[in-house]
Amino acid sequence: MTVTQHIITIALCSLATILTRSIPFLLFRENKETPEFIKYIGKFLPSAVFGMLVVYCLKDVNITAFPFGLPELVCILVTILLHLWKKQMIFSILGGSLLYILISYLL
């Protein structure tokens, strides 16, 4: 990518963010009922999007050759266990990532 393409990509991210934050203020008046479709999407979209993002992070993992995606699998499981145990976001992310970095150097 060229620097111009970087700038466009970053600008599009910024624009999308500004749009999602400002649309309610531009479109809806106070005390008006939230449109049903928005409510529905609000309930159902977040889990799907975060599930999609987890897969996105793992898109370049090759499970057909050594180490067969095992480091990712193990570190994700460790992250989940740490999070179920302490429910501290920083702790879980740090634990899983440090283990992954360690494994990356050992392999």
Partner: peptide, 28 residues
């Protein structure tokens, strides 16, 4: 991997808030 771990944690938090995980399965 910090990004993966971050989204796994956010996904998990979302998961624990739900009774039905149909949307999570659709996404994945």
């Amino acid at each position: 991997f910090v990004m993966t771990a971050m989204f796994v944690v956010i996904f998990l938090d979302q998961w624990m808030k739900e009774k039905i995980h149909i949307s999570a399965f659709i996404g994945i």
